[in-house]
Amino acid sequence: MTIDSKNLQLFHFNYCPYCIKVRAALKLMGIDIELKNIHESEAYLKELLQGGGKKQVPCLRIEQDGHIEWLYESDDIIHYLKKHLAG
């Protein structure tokens, strides 16, 4: 199953080492998704807390067929991106 990158958002902040790891993987795979820095926007932090239930980053928000999933852990996020988007 493939997913459109427009249906993905990465909640992160600049100096989190796990976020850096995921952003580097995105760059290496040539994947462009929306990045939401929770330290630059109170609205992004609120969205993460309300949707995902915790402040932990990185967090990948996946929307598919009207269903929303919140995926935590850098290695899990990278694995998901490789499986569904990397070409």
Rank of each mutant, 00 (worst) to 15 (best):
H39N: 14
Y15H: 06
I3D: 09
C16T: 12
S74D: 11
W70Y: 15
G30F: 07
K83D: 11
L26V: 14
R61D: 01
C16R: 07
L71F: 13
L48E: 03
P58E: 08
I78D: 09
I68T: 14
C59Q: 04
H39Y: 06
I20N: 02
P17V: 14
V57H: 12
K36C: 04
Q50E: 13
L48C: 02
R23E: 03
I78P: 08
I20M: 15
L48T: 02
L8R: 12
D4E: 09
P58N: 04
Q64C: 04
H67L: 09
Y44F: 15
D76M: 09
K55M: 09
P17M: 05
D32N: 13
G51M: 11
H12A: 11
L60G: 02
H84V: 07
G52F: 15
P58A: 10
N37Y: 02
E73F: 02
S41L: 06
L85W: 04
K27G: 13
C59M: 09
C19D: 07
I77E: 14
V57P: 11
I62Y: 02
R23M: 12
I77Y: 01
A86K: 14
K36Y: 05
P58F: 12
Y18P: 04
I20K: 14
S41T: 00
A24V: 09
L60H: 05
H12K: 00
L85M: 08
L8A: 10
K46H: 07
L45H: 04
I3V: 15
K36H: 04
F11L: 01
G52L: 00
V22M: 14
L35G: 08
G53Y: 01
F13M: 04
C59V: 12
I3M: 09
E40Y: 03
N14A: 13
D32Y: 07
L35F: 06
C16N: 12
E69G: 01
G87R: 08
K27A: 13
M29R: 05
E42I: 04
C16I: 12
D76C: 04
I20Q: 15
E40C: 00
H84A: 08
Q50L: 07
D4Y: 01
K46Y: 02
H84F: 13
D32H: 13
I78H: 08
K83A: 12
D75Q: 06
I68L: 00
A25P: 09
G30L: 06
D4A: 12
I68M: 00
A25E: 05
L81F: 06
H79Q: 12
D75R: 05
L49T: 00
L85P: 05
I31G: 06
G52A: 15
D4P: 08
S74W: 07
V22Q: 03
E47T: 13
H67Q: 12
E47D: 15
Y44I: 01
S5V: 10
R23T: 11
C19A: 12
K6A: 14
K54G: 06
P17T: 09
